[in-house]
């Protein structure tokens, strides 16, 4: 006689636990995805974000909440499903997640900036990217906006007259430095600084930022190799520029890094054909 209600109770508890575990699973997968993304393990991170999205989807179907929609939105953001992420953040807002509306708004702005850029309205898109990199509290949006903004602003700066160009480069450098202050662990921000210092022929600073970028990690093999080439370029620049004593000092530091990276000579990174 008690068997049925008992079974129901067990089932209810089990289903309840399953719901809890969907959100928990979603959060765990998202965290694992972030860890893999930080190590630039793109394939692994995408698989984790997919799983996080699926688990969050199961959760919002059974037990919608601000938290579940937020995790779903974050996973969609990492998968570059902009429209879906925007909708999830709005849902999260409706379920009490206060930042949801602002995040959805920032995503909509990012979409707008991309469209402006595609239609050739560089100046307007640059303004929106600038706004996002100053205001957005979503790391992946800040990083994407930073990439887009600096590339576009650098391109524009290089077209200016010498004096104007110097001013624009200074301002851009400050922006890139602020980004590093916001997220010290992002190698790409140091890569950007290294590139800007390179334009200013400040080889020592460019070298130091490139070393930091290399140590922190870079988003693709091509950018990683370009960063190594920048290191070699700075080495050659400093060889011409420094007084003998300063050069000796720099060389001993350079040789330390070479040993750490297993470079056999100062101008040949390990990936380069011999």
């Amino acid at each position: 006689m008690f068997k049925k209600p008992a079974l129901l109770l067990v089932l209810t508890v089990f289903v309840g636990m399953a719901c809890v575990s969907h959100l928990k699973e979603a959060k765990t997968s998202y965290a694992q995805g972030q860890r893999s993304a930080r190590d630039y393990q793109t394939q692994a991170s995408q698989a984790y974000f997919q799983k996080a999205r699926q688990e969050a989807f199961q959760e919002v179907r059974g037990k919608p909440s601000g938290q579940a929609y937020m995790v779903k939105g974050l996973a969609e953001l990492e998968l570059e499903l902009w429209q879906e992420a925007e909708e999830s953040f709005l849902e999260a807002f409706h379920y009490g997640f206060e930042k949801g509306e602002e995040w959805a708004h920032h995503l909509a702005l990012f979409g707008l900036a991309s469209s402006l850029e595609e239609s050739g309205l560089q100046e307007s898109s640059r303004q929106v990217y600038r706004y996002l990199l100053d205001r957005s509290r979503i790391p992946s949006i800040t990083l994407l906006a930073a990439q887009k903004y600096t590339e576009s602003a650098l391109e524009e700066a290089l077209e200016r007259e010498e004096k104007e160009k110097d001013k624009a480069l200074d301002s851009l450098l400050k922006t890139a430095q602020r980004l590093s202050e916001k997220d010290m662990s992002c190698g790409y921000y140091f890569y950007l600084q290294s590139q800007i210092y390179g334009h200013q022929s400040a080889y020592r600073q460019s070298f130091e930022r490139a070393v930091m970028a290399r140590e922190l990690g870079l988003p693709s093999e091509a950018v990683f190799r370009d960063n190594d080439n920048q290191i070699v370029f700075c080495y050659r620049g400093l060889k011409d520029e420094l007084a003998p004593w300063d050069w000796e000092q720099f060389l001993s530091i350079y040789q330390e890094w070479m040993r750490r990276w297993s470079w056999t000579d100062p101008e040949t990174p390990t990936w380069l054909k011999r």
Binding site: E151, S152, Q195, S201, F233, R236
Partner: peptide
């Protein structure tokens, strides 16, 4: 790619010279 359009003149010269 976008990032290649903004390499510095000196870097480009060095690439061809080296």
């Amino acid at each position: 790619p976008e990032w290649i359009r903004t390499k510095s003149d000196m870097f480009i010269l060095d690439f061809f010279q080296s």
